[in-house]
Deep mutational scan, measured.
Amino acid sequence: MDALKSAGRALIRSPSLAKQSWGGGGRHRKLPENWTDTRETLLEGMLFSLKYLGMTLVEQPKGEELSAAAIKRIVATAKASGKKLQKVTLKVSPRGIILTDNLTNQLIENVSIYRISYCTADKMHDKVFAYIAQSQHNQSLECHAFLCTKRKMAQAVTLTVAQAFKVAFEFWQVSKEEKEKRDKASQEGGDVLGARQDCTPPLKSLVATGNLLDLEETAKAPLSTVSANTTNMDEVPRPQALSGSSVVWELDDGLDEAFSRLAQSRTNPQVLDTGLTAQDMHYAQCLSPVDWDKPDSSGTEQDDLFSF
């Protein structure tokens, strides 16, 4: 819950932080000083300027060897085509990944977070970031790969997607708890209302004896509580940590079903599988986004697919 609360507080303090972009060759504004600060901008989305290598189908939802083989196929196909790589912007948030063309600003792909089953910074092609997700059109699994400016960037994108998945799962947990509370309150309110109706004398007997209905007592009954809980029953509950912020979080049926399955089948359902080692994760978390744009010590960066 700490990640969720800190993310909400950060967004309320400075929503404009989320509009910064990394990996864009110096076009961005001043960047936060450390990885923790940038992680807090996830709610509205972190932007990464990358190059799209392509996509291939895979048979399993996750796995280092599986993704490595898929990336190898994608890279080989991209090299064989001889075409310049498409420059894209990857927007990562707890909602998922939005992929747009840098030149036309046209939407290429919009992947809900619950469809993503794996992401990684490839070991062999260490400047490549990739994720595996279920197609929104059918049940097939797709591996999408992107060329980053350097290994640090690939690791940073991988960690960002993993963190977005974690925050999304926490949102789901909060929403589920809130819905259970509202359902319980609604049920209790309905029981109270039913009890009051059972003990209320029939209207005919009131008229016969000349008694008047006590409207004041009726007004004191917990009807307002019942209506408050039943009027918006169809509205999706939102985490309290975000009250007053500009973010509107809505959970669709697909996300609810997917996270429910994860909660039942996995020990740590909030953790998205990645190909990063503990050492890689520690190294990337210690980086400032400013470091992502620094040239690798191995030599001059080449803006070309064939540089790796």
Score class of each variant (00 low, 15 high):
residue 122 D to K: 00
residue 286 C to T: 02
residue 163 Q to T: 15
residue 219 A to W: 02
residue 300 T to F: 02
residue 32 P to M: 08
residue 197 Q to I: 04
residue 168 A to P: 04
residue 165 F to Q: 02
residue 74 I to G: 01
residue 300 T to A: 09
residue 277 T to F: 10
residue 274 T to E: 06
residue 3 A to H: 10
residue 55 M to F: 10
residue 154 A to G: 00
residue 104 T to D: 04
residue 251 L to C: 10
residue 204 K to C: 02
residue 91 K to L: 05
residue 172 W to R: 02
residue 294 K to W: 09
residue 265 S to F: 02
residue 195 A to L: 03
residue 163 Q to C: 14
residue 183 D to R: 13
residue 162 A to M: 06
residue 132 I to Q: 01
residue 148 C to Q: 00
residue 60 Q to L: 12
residue 266 R to D: 04
residue 137 H to V: 13
residue 199 C to I: 04
residue 194 G to M: 03
residue 92 V to R: 00
residue 61 P to W: 13
residue 223 L to K: 07
residue 73 R to T: 12
residue 60 Q to M: 14
residue 192 V to E: 05
residue 85 L to K: 00
residue 218 T to N: 08
residue 103 L to R: 09
residue 7 A to G: 15
residue 287 L to I: 15
residue 41 T to L: 06
residue 207 V to Y: 02
residue 120 T to N: 12
residue 147 L to G: 05
residue 66 L to P: 03
residue 51 K to C: 01
residue 111 V to I: 08
residue 227 S to A: 12
residue 78 A to L: 05
residue 128 V to A: 00
residue 230 T to R: 06
residue 44 E to R: 14
residue 30 K to V: 11
residue 131 Y to F: 04
residue 47 L to F: 09
residue 252 D to W: 03
residue 110 N to F: 04
residue 79 K to V: 05
residue 83 K to H: 12
residue 82 G to I: 01
residue 34 N to M: 14
residue 138 N to W: 04
residue 186 S to A: 09
residue 89 T to Q: 11
residue 241 A to P: 13
residue 265 S to T: 02
residue 204 K to I: 08
residue 43 L to N: 15
residue 279 Q to K: 10
residue 104 T to V: 01
residue 293 D to S: 06
residue 72 K to T: 13
residue 183 D to V: 15
residue 89 T to I: 09
residue 286 C to L: 10
residue 262 L to S: 02
residue 28 H to F: 11
residue 307 S to T: 14
residue 116 I to P: 00
residue 272 L to V: 09
residue 302 Q to P: 12
residue 177 E to I: 10
residue 283 Y to R: 08
residue 146 F to D: 00
residue 124 M to V: 08
residue 225 T to I: 04
residue 269 P to G: 04
residue 139 Q to L: 10
residue 84 K to W: 02
residue 56 T to Q: 13
residue 158 T to F: 03
residue 267 T to H: 08
residue 276 L to Q: 13
residue 205 S to V: 06
residue 170 E to K: 08
residue 220 K to L: 04
residue 57 L to C: 06
residue 200 T to N: 07
residue 280 D to I: 13
residue 281 M to F: 05
residue 249 W to S: 07
residue 168 A to C: 09
residue 254 G to P: 07
residue 76 A to R: 13
residue 218 T to G: 14
residue 35 W to R: 09
residue 238 R to Q: 05
residue 256 D to W: 04
residue 88 V to W: 11
residue 45 G to A: 08
residue 49 S to N: 13
residue 221 A to C: 05
residue 40 E to M: 08
residue 253 D to N: 12
residue 236 V to L: 09
residue 66 L to M: 08
residue 64 E to S: 12
residue 216 E to R: 08
residue 28 H to A: 15
residue 199 C to P: 11
residue 147 L to N: 03
residue 257 E to H: 04
residue 207 V to G: 08
residue 44 E to Y: 04
residue 21 S to D: 15
residue 120 T to S: 05
residue 242 L to V: 14
residue 144 H to A: 07
residue 154 A to Y: 00
residue 307 S to V: 08
residue 120 T to M: 07
residue 55 M to C: 09
residue 34 N to E: 10
residue 121 A to C: 07
residue 302 Q to E: 08
residue 304 D to K: 08
residue 143 C to T: 02
residue 211 N to C: 04
residue 209 T to L: 05
residue 267 T to N: 03
residue 305 L to S: 08
residue 113 I to K: 06
residue 74 I to K: 00
residue 241 A to C: 09
residue 129 F to M: 07
residue 60 Q to K: 12
residue 222 P to M: 13
residue 137 H to K: 14
residue 189 G to S: 02
residue 144 H to R: 15
residue 270 Q to I: 04
residue 272 L to D: 03
residue 225 T to P: 14
residue 148 C to N: 10
residue 204 K to F: 04
residue 25 G to V: 11
residue 18 A to E: 10
residue 80 A to G: 14
residue 68 A to Q: 01
residue 191 D to F: 01
residue 154 A to N: 00
residue 122 D to W: 00
residue 84 K to H: 15
residue 150 K to I: 02
residue 176 K to T: 10
residue 278 A to T: 06
residue 72 K to P: 01
residue 14 S to K: 08
residue 285 Q to T: 09
residue 62 K to V: 10
residue 139 Q to V: 11
residue 131 Y to H: 01
residue 111 V to M: 15
residue 9 R to Y: 09
residue 120 T to R: 13
residue 255 L to T: 10
residue 173 Q to F: 10
residue 254 G to Y: 03
residue 298 S to L: 02
residue 84 K to S: 15
residue 65 E to W: 06
residue 164 A to Q: 02
residue 227 S to M: 04
residue 263 A to S: 12
residue 220 K to S: 06
residue 144 H to I: 03
residue 172 W to S: 02
residue 174 V to D: 14
residue 237 P to A: 06
residue 258 A to S: 03
residue 160 T to L: 15
residue 266 R to L: 03
residue 56 T to F: 01
residue 4 L to C: 06
residue 118 Y to I: 04
residue 161 V to G: 00
residue 259 F to P: 05
residue 234 D to K: 04
residue 226 V to H: 08
residue 67 S to L: 14
residue 249 W to F: 12
residue 24 G to T: 03
residue 98 I to K: 03
